[in-house]
Design a protein around this nucleic acid. Structure first.
Lengths: 349, 349
DNA sequence: CTGAAAGCGCTTACAG
DNA sequence: CTGAAAGCGCTTACAG
């Protein structure tokens, strides 16, 4: 603690510096100040006026007022990121990627709602009244997009099957899901279960469908009563698994695939409590490949999803849109891949 | 995937509904519309006009324009949350807590920067030009607060020693740190190391100082060369630990305390690779008590920090401030407590 | 109780 | 190249 007791400074409340003040100081009109402040001087402002204004701006510490500017332009510098599940650590990386590619000109507004929920129509309206420069929607469902009808540039993240609504950046989760099913089949599993996310987003439907299809085609049985759903929460998943396990065990289940690593952690946790040996007695796997999946013991087998790249790509696309460029045709799809660790293979760590 | 191919709707671009349109429809002035829309009718608008306006609002789907309103009022409905490390999952809970207590009237704007960095003066200026209704700053340092000089209501989170700058909600991390040192001393450790965060925020300084002091007083030696720092990242911590371990081992180190669980995961990961037995050969502990700490094997001993409560309390305080109430005297401090698990105690899980 | 009007701070045709 | 002016959508004294 290097700060000790500090007395609250009673600074003279700094008056907001306006374009008019800069104009007066530089001896020009506010129109000219606006042109200079926005870098729109090309062939419209004399060199010496440019420097006079720049000086005045620096001296007064002038910053264009975001609100006034937005009202005049009809659009703000805010980019809204809507996502159903910010509590997933996966998401922090997505945000970081978005931030990086968006640059400092845009401010990122996070729309946070109840875990797994999308904002209500009223919330969306309120958000839109901020006149966002652009919108990013993560893991949406069709219903939400129908309601949205955004007049602002819009890019979807992780929205398989919804590409027709807006430019999308997707993850090839189906491929990862198939790799996982194949891996389990190769290891000799014949009876499996699936822990899904209750979030009604398309990406989870795709993960499950692809896994089930590939599993079936490889002789793994996953009957409907062996598919359960919980929120993306370690405790919730642990509880649901604890409740389901006796039946599953009786049915000879030897492998559980989970919609996210977070769900899988819950299963691992409960398994430890219940003394279920992993992977000998039960193989466990998830999606996300969170940093902790490499750390847990045993390590968690997981479908790696490139979170940062997802955010970056989406930010890039949105930026192009906001700058009025049109996008190269077809959405972007990023690769996923299975990372095998000790939770499904005694040979791995 | 229940959506299949959808054809992009070519909706007639929905014209923005303004107060003037509502006024025309209801047969009143825009002033009256504004009063009704803002619920400031008490003794100023006739009952039948209120209902006429309400009807018109509903029929047209009018929403007060955030930008126009902000400009007129001089302040927006945006609350800015500044934090140096959003990649820490701890943070997602803090955000959720803030969101909950702030209510739907305020929009949460996230200021995201490079991991561990605070926004530059220029970034802050740009943010302030949005005329935020309030500011929340997580784990700040004194320098940043000096620069900030915010005219908006401001509440600090996890800002030990900085209470003089603004109302604060703190975590008693020192107490947790002391409990941890005591726990290690009781377990017989005499030579320890510390993995710190490079983020120059006060909370980490307090954690370290309290740990070192209590350790020293209980006969645990942590010489300066046994204090290393990395970003809050599993891989970075793993690498730094790998490099330091040979020396530490030679010096007889049997315990490592980490500034965050994330750092500790890195140590656990590297320990597994290097075949270091936990906790027999090396005891490991962190701060945060992330959900994964209960799941890892061995479980990670950690100082539990009440993340959601932190966000909630801070949101509450800010809300009071924004509503013009003055705050009860003295900052709030939330308890922390040590959770002992297998990483420091063979007896625990 | 009501509305006309000023004003918030800016941007952008427009006339010169 | 430059500035006066209109306008963005709202809120808030103010006069009635």
């Amino acid at each position: 603690m290097d700060s000790g007791e500090q007395v609250q400074q009673q600074r003279p409340r700094p008056r907001r510096v306006t374009a008019a003040m800069v104009a007066a100081r530089a001896g020009v009109s506010v129109a000219t100040v606006s042109l200079v402040a926005n870098g729109k001087t090309a062939g419209r402002v004399a060199e010496d006026n440019i420097s006079r204004v720049r000086e005045a701006i620096a001296e007064l510490g002038y910053v264009v007022d975001g609100i006034g500017s937005s009202l005049a332009k009809g659009v703000s510098s805010i980019v809204i990121l809507v996502a159903p599940d910010i509590s997933n650590p996966f998401f922090a990386k997505v945000i970081a990627g978005v931030r990086e590619s968006l640059g400092p000109q845009y401010q990122l507004l996070l729309s946070v709602t109840e875990a797994g929920e999308f904002p209500e129509a009223a919330d969306v309206r309120r958000l839109m009244s901020l006149r966002p420069a652009g919108l990013l929607v993560d893991a949406p469902n069709a219903g939400f997009l129908e309601d949205l009808a955004s007049p602002s540039p819009l890019v979807l993240l992780d929205a398989p099957g919804l590409e027709s609504y807006a430019p999308s950046v997707n993850l090839d989760v189906a491929s990862g899901a198939r790799q996982l099913a194949a891996h389990l089949a190769d290891a000799g599993h014949r009876e499996a279960a699936y822990v899904d996310s209750v979030t009604g987003t398309e990406t989870f439907a795709v993960r499950r469908a692809a896994f089930l299809e590939e599993a079936a085609s490889r002789g793994i049985s996953v009957s409907p009563e062996r598919i359960i759903s919980t929120t993306i929460d370690v405790g919730a998943a642990a509880g649901a698994f604890a409740e389901a396990w006796p039946d599953w065990q009786r049915a000879g289940v030897t492998a559980v695939a989970c919609a996210t690593d977070t769900h899988a952690y819950g299963v691992l946790q409960e398994a430890r409590v219940a003394g279920i040996r992993i992977p000998e007695e039960l193989a466990v796997a998830g999606f996300d490949d969170l940093p902790y999946s490499a750390t847990s013991n045993p390590g968690l087998t997981s479908v790696h999803l490139p979170a940062t790249a997802l955010g970056q790509k989406a930010g890039e696309q949105l930026r192009s849109l906001m700058e009025g460029k049109s996008l190269g045709h077809g959405g972007v799809t990023l690769e996923t891949s299975l990372v095998v660790r000790g939770s499904t293979s005694a040979a791995a760590t």
